[in-house]
């Protein structure tokens, strides 16, 4: 029997794969859009799930607290250490606290927090919801008269949106501590003098842009994690893919959002 006629040519096969991927990309984009619209439709309509939101905020905070403490401190310490030689060549060592404060407040604190949360929280949300989908727990919730979207998705997205800005503020403070330790060890600057120089160059816009960034990052991490988990494919493979997809997509989007927000806020300086 001649089977050659039934087998697609390699070029045609490649064409089909590309076509499928492009269609898949736009279908995903449309589904994410519907997911976000549904979130806004359901999150702000009673009944509210206050208890679950608080529980999720606690989960988000506790899951990332230790890692953020260590990373924030190291970022502050190392950034100060690496910046010293450049400033020293101009004899501008006294500018170190100001440089550290601008770097940490404007960029590092929200970005580092978001990246860590993408890994810790995003993956955990993706895996948790996906395993609930696989084991029919989401269906069980639905048939028992509970809206699983409101209970599982809205609460988690609101929790990350609220918790990430708090964590970012904490990262900034810990980063400042790391910077102070390095400056104190090398220049012998007092804590009050360091704090005074740290906050002096900061403007209202630095705080607000940092806060807006953290809110956007938090929302993104929550939405991406929930989307990946809520619509994951069946089977254990689906759980792994959801967790992985949540981290990769959230990190990618965080960088894109960082660029966009920086471009927008720089117009107001």
């Amino acid at each position: 029997m001649n089977t050659e006629n039934n087998t697609p040519a390699p070029a045609q096969k490649k064409d089909n794969t590309i076509k499928r991927r492009i269609t898949g990309f736009f279908t995903d984009l449309y589904k994410i859009h519907l997911f976000i619209v549904r979130f806004f439709k359901e999150a702000f309509v009673p009944p509210f799930e206050f208890k679950e939101i608080v529980r999720q905020c606690y989960e988000v905070g506790v899951r990332s607290f230790a890692l953020i403490s260590v990373t924030g401190f190291i970022v502050g310490f190392i950034f100060t250490k690496q910046s010293r030689p450049s400033l020293a060549s101009f004899g501008a060592n006294s500018w170190l606290p100001s440089l550290v404060s601008i770097a940490i407040m404007r960029a590092l604190a929200p970005l580092v927090t978001a990246l860590i949360a993408s890994g810790k929280v995003g993956s955990s949300i993706g895996a948790e919801l996906s395993s609930m989908r696989v084991t029919e727990q989401i269906d069980a919730m639905e048939v028992s008269g509970t809206n699983p979207f409101k209970f599982l998705v809205c609460t988690r997205v609101l929790a990350t949106t609220l918790a990430i800005p708090i964590l970012a503020t904490y990262t900034a403070l810990i980063g400042m501590l790391g910077g102070y330790l390095n400056v104190s060890m090398n220049e012998g600057v007092s804590y009050t003098a360091f704090v005074d120089q740290f906050f002096r160059p900061l403007m209202f816009l630095d705080f607000t842009s940092s806060l807006i960034k953290s809110i956007v990052f938090g929302f993104t991490i929550g939405i991406v994690g929930c989307y990946q988990g809520f619509y994951s494919k069946e089977g254990t493979e689906g759980v792994g893919k959801a967790a992985n997809g949540a981290v990769v997509t959230a990190m990618f989007l965080v960088f894109i959002e960082e660029i966009i927000i920086v471009q927008i806020t720089s117009n107001f300086r």
Binding site: M132, T135, E136, Q137, D139, A140, M141, V143, S144
Partner: peptide, 11 residues
């Protein structure tokens, strides 16, 4: 009432 094949208890 819906009793699932996998029981679907919230673990």
């Amino acid at each position: 009432g819906f009793s699932f094949q996998s029981s679907a208890l919230y673990d």
